[in-house]
């Protein structure tokens, strides 16, 4: 009886600890977690990793970029424990690798132009026709008389996928569009080109670029959250099969209450 009580007490104590903080799942554990993939995820991953490694120095977490496609590929081939992607893995990829997907945040993708560009708003139809190469001068959409320079992302980009599907309605993108390789490169290119137009994750927006309103809605994370801004995507962590051990603990931590603020601070909307 006494022993039973003691065991119960210990169990209770353990439960309190376990539910007390997401970091406790890592107590007494050790090992490495390698993470790679989508560049939008990196701020969240790094902050979560720092918290975990500070609480438990026996755990080492490395965070690398590479893009959504690289994330899925690397986790599928077993090169990293968690592969991040800003797009849902394709059915073939899920079938081939047996991926488990964990969506933890929502991110919006905004059209961006140079801050010097007088155009303050565009309709989705105008954006489609600009990207298709049908509208080629800013004066046709209320701007100055100058040729429009198109910027787009490579085919592996999760940002491109959501923009192309949800805003361009899978329409054509003119072959003459310049292709850049990351959200950061897009921001640099458009901020320095007074006649350029591009698109980037809302988390990347700052004073160097301007995001014109789309059909009257200014693209902000708030608008993305309440659904008034439609060009949004989920950010995923992918594992090969169901995660176990410290990888599961990491996924749970990012999906748990502790990371809500981290995700918000990084400019995204937590899903939980």
């Amino acid at each position: 009886m006494k022993r039973g009580l003691l065991a119960l007490g210990m169990l209770l104590a353990l439960c309190t600890v376990a539910f007390g903080s997401g970091l406790d799942a890592f107590k007494g554990q050790k090992g490495d977690i390698a993470i790679a993939g989508g560049t939008a995820h990196i701020p969240v991953m790094e902050k979560a990793a720092r918290n975990i490694m500070t609480a438990n120095p026996d755990i080492r977490i490395s965070v690398a970029g590479g893009g959504s496609g690289v994330g899925i590929q690397k986790v599928g081939e077993g090169l990293v424990a968690i592969g991040n992607s800003g797009r849902k893995a394709s059915e073939e990829e899920v079938a081939k690798y047996g991926l488990a997907m964990f969506a933890f945040a929502v991110d919006g993708v905004a059209t961006i132009v140079s801050p010097d560009n007088p155009v303050g708003g565009l309709t989705s139809d105008q954006v489609c026709r600009i990207y298709a190469g049908e509208i080629t001068n800013w004066k046709d959409v209320g701007g100055k008389d100058a040729a429009i320079n198109l910027y787009t992302r490579d085919e592996a980009s999760g940002t491109r996928e959501v923009y192309w599907k949800k805003l361009l309605k899978k329409g054509t993108i003119a072959a003459s569009a310049n292709v850049v390789a990351s959200n950061g490169a897009m921001k640099t290119a458009v901020s320095r080109d007074p006649d350029g137009i591009g698109y980037a994750s809302i988390g990347y927006l700052d004073a160097t670029v301007k995001a014109p309103a789309l059909d009257g809605v200014v693209p902000t994370q708030e608008a993305a959250k309440d659904g008034s801004y439609p060009v949004v995507r989920k950010l995923y962590m992918n594992t090969k099969g169901e995660p176990a051990g410290i990888v599961k603990a990491f996924v749970d931590y990012v999906m748990g209450p502790d990371c809500v603020q981290i995700i918000k601070d990084s400019g995204y909307i937590p899903l939980h």
């Binding site: 590479g66 893009g67 959504s68 496609g69 690289v70 899925i72 590929q73 599928g76 394709s90 073939e92 990829e93 081939k96 490579d154 085919e155 592996a156 292709v179 390789a181």
Partner: peptide
């Protein structure tokens, strides 16, 4: 360099 990150199938 641009395409290597696409779906490998």
């Amino acid at each position: 360099a641009l395409v290597v990150a696409t779906d490998s199938h």
